[in-house]
Design a binder for these strands. Structure first.
Length: 218
DNA sequence: TGCCAGGCCGGGT
DNA sequence: ACCCGGCATGGC
């Protein structure tokens, strides 16, 4: 699949670097990854702001906090009851397997970390891979709804294909480059937000098909 | 005013 | 191995 590198070039030319993931620390990024599940990022920022305001954005603070109280603080992010439990699950995972420190995770083998993350109730493939890439700097490509939509709209792969199939496509077509994976996923989200809305036909102003006849990729 | 947002789980087929 | 309902706030 030679199209994937060319799509990256076009997106980067169109939008430039994306400065992902917004967040001051690996832990904050991980919390954000859980809070943003099926949720607008702006709402996640409100929830994170609430936590910071109470000096509660730490492993110890969230661990010691009643789940009820945690749910109240993250309310703007939606699904606050399930997400409060999921944050608690992640904290327990951190304490039990990594002494409560993100720094202890980084040295581990990527596949082992991924499997451990997927064993946490409430962490699925996208959340696990977001933590791996954006919090831990591991070379794994993050697949999300925008990635599937953009690629399927442009005839690369049908959106009924699985997460793993999409991920395998990127992994096989691209170098294992953390900085590029970081930008590429963020750029797919960007183009998805701006030009590739749900329930709408392919937009003719999308930078991926600006040339007549769609892709000029062969 | 509905629709949508950087998913995942649990139960049923 | 899939399919589906549930989970919830806030912006446009």
């Amino acid at each position: 699949m030679r199209k994937l590198p060319e799509i990256y070039q076009k997106l980067f030319q169109a939008f430039g670097p994306q400065h992902w993931w917004p967040g001051d620390s690996p832990f904050e990024i991980s919390v954000g990854a859980i809070l943003t599940q099926n949720t607008n990022w702006g709402n996640v920022e409100k929830a994170i702001h609430n936590l910071k305001k109470q000096n509660a954005l730490t492993v110890k603070s969230i661990h010691d906090m009643p789940v009820q109280k945690l749910a109240e603080l993250i309310k703007p992010a939606g699904y606050f009851n399930v997400k409060a439990k999921r944050l608690k699950n992640f904290i327990h995972f951190l304490m039990n397997k990594y002494h409560g420190s993100m720094k202890r995770i980084v040295d581990g083998d990527m596949q082992v970390i991924r499997k451990n993350l997927l064993d946490v109730n409430g962490i699925g493939p996208e959340t696990a891979d977001s933590i791996l890439l954006y919090a831990l700097g591991k070379p794994v490509f993050v697949i999300d709804a925008y990635t599937k939509r953009v690629l399927s709209r442009h005839g690369i792969m049908g959106d009924e294909k699985s997460y793993d199939e999409f991920q395998e496509l990127f992994h096989s077509a691209l170098d294992r480059d953390v900085a590029m994976y970081n930008q590429y996923h963020a750029l797919l989200v960007k183009v998805g937000k701006v030009y590739c809305r749900r329930q709408r036909p392919l937009c003719d102003r999308c930078p991926l098909q600006a040339l007549p006849g769609g892709f000029n990729f062969e």
